[in-house]
Computed example of a mutant assay.
Amino acid sequence: MSEARKGPDEADENRYDSGIESLRSLRSLPEPAALAPGPSDGGGPQSWTPPRGGAEGPEEKEDADGERADSTYGSSSITGPLPLLGDLETEDPAPCSPLVPTGALNAQQLEALTYISEEGDTLVHLAVIHEAQAMLLYCLAVLPQEVLDIQNNLYQTALHLAVHLDQPRAVQALVLKGASRVLQDLHGDTALHMACQRQHLACARCLLEGRPEPGRAQPHSLDLQLQNWQGLACLHIATLQRNRPLMELLLHNGADIDAQEGTSGKTALHLAVETQERSLVQFLLRAGARVDARMLNGCTPLHLAAGRGLSSISSTLCEAGADSLLRNVEDETPQDLAEDPLALLPFDDLKISGKPLLCAD
């Protein structure tokens, strides 16, 4: 959990190893076999060289929500004209049918394809930002896989931006070409975290169910328990968003229903209680959530429900077998916290003055 508490500006090799710096390694990449010298090349093969001044950008620009304010939606901050890359199709081709470049690429075209803007965006980022599907597929067809995982000044990959802008076809194409699904942005969010936050179900499905094509294997598998810098895994975010379809999708693909978030140790069931939605609590209990899961302070979901006066949720938890006598680190039981302690008694045959005691629902 030490990683969950790291600030965005702290040095961490795990966060930066596939970032902007990765462009500098393009000089050592072998040229694709399909690339032959063009008529203006002078006959010799051209090396991969990043454009001057592209590796370092200005200070990061954010809006009030911490999201991109400049390049995500608006300007691409291109500092010079890009050479033509050949005739691209005007209609969006299908993601599974990438556009194959015709003819050889000269040095000028290779430089354009490895261009980086002032915000750290590559041409792949810009194709997603401007919803240029044909250009995106062209880049995916000719660029090495390492370029797809270059992160901009906010540590967002093109896959982050495709999810942010709710472009499932672009997400599908990037995953097919092996784009990493585990890289984290400035807030520690993977593309899947972002899909859960923005409730983009189609993008989440592409991320979870998509597989790279042969020869595009990913070095790291998708970790559904990975936490962002707030300590939240994807299931925690989907629960706080009260999005049952997303929760079902995550659980179906192997998310741990009892995983604890990194700040106080709450499980999805604790968070569901805090949303005060009884149907969400019932859904998690039916899915197998541990009813007496404990937070770091020893509180169970019933402690939270009783302390908040949520009688109907408390009743649901008791019916599922919650123990109303468990004590937290402050030696309190859920009965101690309840407004009506009798409502949480684990007996259904109590009588007062000869009359049965009815528990409130």
Rank of each mutant, 00 (worst) to 15 (best):
L325P: 05
L326Q: 12
L317C: 07
L85W: 15
I257D: 01
L246H: 03
L183S: 06
G309S: 09
S22G: 03
I116D: 02
T79Y: 09
A132M: 13
I237S: 02
D185E: 09
T239A: 06
E118T: 14
W48D: 07
G298W: 01
L137H: 14
A259H: 14
Y155A: 11
A233F: 03
H252A: 15
A179W: 00
G354Y: 06
L246D: 04
L280E: 00
N153A: 12
Q197C: 11
C234M: 08
L326I: 11
A287N: 04
P81K: 09
A287T: 05
G57H: 02
Q156V: 04
P346N: 12
L337H: 03
V291F: 06
Q108G: 06
L344T: 01
P83A: 05
L224H: 00
V182K: 02
G80W: 15
L250M: 02
Q225T: 13
V291K: 10
M194K: 14
T267V: 03
A107D: 06
G354R: 07
A204Y: 00
D12V: 00
A338R: 02
L280A: 07
S353E: 13
A112G: 15
Q199S: 15
L137V: 12
E67C: 10
V124I: 15
P245N: 02
G54N: 05
A204C: 09
T157N: 01
A259T: 05
I257Q: 00
N228D: 04
L246R: 04
G178Y: 00
A338I: 04
P214V: 04
P334D: 08
E277F: 01
V142A: 13
Y138M: 04
D258N: 15
